[in-house]
Design a protein around this nucleic acid. Sequence first.
DNA 1: TGATCCATGTAAGGAGTTACATGATTAA
DNA 2: TTAATCATGTAACTCCTTACATGGATCA
Lengths: 189, 189
Amino acid sequence: MALEHAILVSLLEKPGSGYELARRFERSIGYFWTATHQQIYRVLKRMAADGWVDVLDVAQQGRPDKKEYSVSPAGRSALAGWLHEPIEPESVRHEIAVKIRGAAFDEPAGLIAEVERHRRMHEDQLAHYLAGQARDFPPGTGEGPPGAAPDPGRELQHAVLRGGIAYERMMTAWLDDVLDTLRRLGPGG
Amino acid sequence: MALEHAILVSLLEKPGSGYELARRFERSIGYFWTATHQQIYRVLKRMAADGWVDVLDVAQQGRPDKKEYSVSPAGRSALAGWLHEPIEPESVRHEIAVKIRGAAFDEPAGLIAEVERHRRMHEDQLAHYLAGQARDFPPGTGEGPPGAAPDPGRELQHAVLRGGIAYERMMTAWLDDVLDTLRRLGPGG
DNA sequence: TGATCCATGTAAGGAGTTACATGATTAA
DNA sequence: TTAATCATGTAACTCCTTACATGGATCA
């Protein structure tokens, strides 16, 4: 299970509440790991019981109180231990590919609208990542301004973001390819 | 749930036993959906109870008897119904990306060997897909020999395989990029 | 007045993984 | 004789999703 570890990484980057973690999982963490608030609260509770995180009750004015979580030394060494274990590449799951192969037994052209919709979603996601990159990693900063020491955290965050960008580019290009194929098969199926 | 639907598609392409389905999920279906034999047997039982598949006991000599499953008319219409429902793109889960961001809090260079290993696995998978493509879709066949009617099933299978190829190409290129970044950060972290 | 944000959770159920179990045949 | 292939399953457990639940503050 990597959700614990994803939470540890996020809390090391910046401590926060379960709610804040859920938002980060929607945004920056979302391009390599997803989790809902229900999952996050459950896992945070377990992590607190295991002593991996420390909890601080924070009273707020004008909004509900929150619990701020931060990584404990035990959590840090749990993460270090996990980093040294080999992992296997994830198994891919693309429901859309099941549909594409299934379309052979239905009306192939009937899938065009759905594939176009997916293509648009991936294109939007790509635009969103590119905007984030332009905002957080403008060209000329970070990667090697001559003489300056690189910030490993920043560089690695950018490397992961480039992975998200490459993924969305690949998906839009592949879905274009699929659309060509579906259209070539013609409206008569 | 798409496992049922992935099984329906596979059984429509060719009827077979649970064991055979498990092997297909390891091979050709594996590049867009994975399932173990335990899962497959459980789901096949449910699908048989729901009348989505027909079962035929086949006695064999020299090997254990098997149950051959094929899609019933009810299964076919269940698939058709599902094909017309919109689906959401899958959430991505890359444990390796969690590790890459986590490396900022450990020794970044310590991750190089693990990333190289993943890169090799993706490269091997790519070679495997390319070999399958060369075998099953040699250039000059399929996509448009002038005058011949295209086989939708075949063309769609190829389109999905091209997605697997594009995915592995993207992953190897991205992991090269990550390796550059890790090496640039230097052995001193 | 209604929607969205902040903030936390419970409960139920479905999906997926890991371990265990059996047993014949065939190739190294 | 050891391992792999064929063939089917159960049991326990973990993980993930969906629905439900609360309640104040802020903005349109």
